[in-house]
Measured scan of single mutants.
Amino acid sequence: GPGLTDLFKTEKAAVKKMAKAIMADPSKADDVYQKWADKGYTLTQLSDFLKSKTRGKYDRVYNGYMTYR
């Protein structure tokens, strides 16, 4: 089956995709945050998933999740 690194890459891609969806349409934020909360994502995990070469690119999404939880 898929190894943990593959799983991480898949999760990371999914999280980034959802983060971009929030940035494009902030009204989606609560739905996405709820999904992440259901998956039990911690802020540390989210921070790892949303690492970007562009500093602060996903800060709004991260901060939103922090206040959501």
Rank of each mutant, 00 (worst) to 15 (best):
A37D: 05
R60S: 13
F49R: 02
R55D: 13
K20P: 00
W36Q: 00
G56L: 04
I22R: 00
V15F: 03
G1M: 09
K28W: 05
A29K: 04
K9Q: 09
Y68F: 09
Y33A: 00
D31A: 12
K20I: 11
Y68W: 15
M66F: 08
K16P: 01
K51N: 09
T10I: 15
Y58V: 02
T10A: 14
R60Q: 14
Y58A: 00
G64C: 04
K35A: 10
K51A: 10
G40S: 04
S52P: 07
D48T: 14
R60I: 11
A19S: 03
S27D: 08
A24V: 10
A19N: 01
K9I: 08
T5C: 15
Y62W: 09
R60Y: 10
Y62A: 05
V15H: 01
V15E: 00
V15G: 01
G56N: 10
T54W: 07
T10E: 14
D31K: 08
P2A: 12
Y41M: 11
L46D: 00
T10D: 08
S52E: 06
Q34R: 13
Y68G: 01
L7V: 13
T42N: 05
G1K: 12
A29D: 02
F49E: 01
G3N: 12
Q34L: 05
R55Q: 15
L4K: 12
G1W: 09
M23D: 03
Y62T: 07
A19Y: 02
S27A: 09
N63C: 15
M18V: 02
G3M: 13
K17W: 08
T5F: 07
Q34D: 04
Y41C: 03
V61H: 01
D25Q: 04
I22T: 03
A29G: 06
W36V: 01
Y65E: 01
K17C: 12
G56P: 04
P2E: 12
T42Q: 03
A37N: 10
R60D: 08
L46Y: 00
M18Q: 15
K20Y: 06
Y33N: 00
A13P: 03
D48N: 13
A19W: 01
K35L: 15
L7F: 12
M18S: 07
M18R: 02
K35C: 13
Y33G: 00
Y41N: 00
V32E: 03
S27E: 07
T54I: 12
Y68K: 02
P26Q: 07
K16V: 13
